[in-house]
């Protein structure tokens, strides 16, 4: 039996307790309704090779059966044996962490899809902060850091099933909660919530909170999209997209000196100062020669 086993009802109850930290408006109920699909089905496993692969298999099997996987289906595993990060990076998923993915049937418009990466980062950062990790901060795009060490990482992959051509987004997450041991090469750059708090957290309760936050953030994406389609301004201050506004509140990237690269670990490209994040989530950088460039993909590392 899996240790990390939140229920859809618990996630929904937790979602209903969420009230926007920035709006406190009647739109909250709409956001909850838009986001309630997240966690409507939850599969908890004691072990899987890789949740993203399992998610793709679920999608394939459902399509073969003439059906479609429920959007918002969450797959969790207490441990995973064949994890990977972006590019060819390894990701370790021992017992004690929150490992899994959420399947999202892609019904967002392209301009909203851009914010999916930000959404999962915001959700995790809020969950960690509410669990006591007050120092958690987001580094563009969605790395969750505490004191410069990575507490969580995310992988967003699109998958189009072949039978009906339906497009899904697989939102993969790996959050170091109670796991304290890291491979030697990661000891200096990884951290867990247990290390920060000095105690273990209830894994199922934390996951429930994270999924409720994820539901809220996806609800925000749909809510803001609906406003835009009606020709109205986004609901953040000065008409800013609410998800982006929340991301900015949780991030320390703006103002930092960084090294940028598409794959910054193996192929760093240039050094720059982060001027701002634009309305599409792009990172506006001033290079060392004074010219300004905006990046919509890739990653940064802070320069001490």
């Amino acid at each position: 039996m899996a240790e990390n086993s939140p229920t859809p009802q618990a996630v929904l109850d937790c979602l209903k307790r969420q009230v926007s930290p920035v709006t406190h408006r009647c739109s909250d109920s709409k956001i909850i309704r838009y986001g309630a699909f997240v966690g409507s089905v939850i599969e908890s496993h004691s072990s899987l090779p890789r949740a993203m692969d399992y998610g793709r298999e679920l999608i394939r099997l459902a399509a073969d059966d003439g059906k479609s996987v429920a959007s918002g289906t969450v797959i969790l595993a207490d441990t995973m044996s064949s994890c990977k990060g972006r590019f060819t990076r390894e990701w370790h998923a021992p017992a004690g962490g929150v490992w899994g993915c959420m399947i999202h049937a892609n019904t967002l418009l392209p301009q909203s899809r851009q914010f999916v990466s930000l959404a999962v980062g915001v959700a995790c950062c809020e969950a960690v902060r509410e669990s006591g990790g007050d120092e958690a901060l987001l580094r563009w795009v969605n790395d969750l850091l505490v004191d410069g060490r990575k507490l969580a990482g995310f992988l967003i992959e699109t998958y189009t099933e072949r039978t009906h051509g339906e497009e899904f987004t697989l939102v993969g997450f790996g959050i170091n909660v109670n796991n304290r041991a890291f491979p030697s090469e990661l000891t200096d750059c990884a951290v867990s919530l247990a290390e920060i708090l000095g105690k273990h957290s209830n894994l199922t309760e934390f996951t429930t909170l994270f999924l409720a936050k994820l539901a809220w953030c996806f609800g925000l994406l749909y809510h803001e999209e609906a406003l835009e389609l009606r020709g109205e301004s986004f609901s953040g201050s000065a008409g800013r997209h609410m998800l982006l506004q929340r991301w900015l509140e949780l991030s320390d990237t703006v103002g930092k000196k960084v090294v940028y690269g598409f794959d910054v670990m193996t192929a760093p490209q240039y050094r720059a100062e982060v001027l701002r994040v634009d309305e599409y989530g792009g990172l506006v950088l001033r290079l060392e020669d004074g010219f300004v460039k905006t990046e919509y993909s890739g990653e940064v590392r802070y320069i001490p």
Binding site: R86, R113, Q114, F115, V116, S117, L118, V141, N142, F154, L155, I156, E157, T158, Y159, T160, T169, G261, F262, D263, A267, Q269, G281, Y296, S297, G298, E299
Partner: peptide
């Protein structure tokens, strides 16, 4: 295809052939 750390596989549509010319550079939009 990589956009805002969202990776999307791109499937080839067309007649069978060899990759003769590559017009993109990794990391350049």
């Amino acid at each position: 295809m990589s956009l805002m750390k969202r990776d999307t596989p791109v499937y080839y549509k067309g007649e069978q052939g060899v990759i003769h010319s590559v017009y993109f550079k990794p990391g350049v939009s």
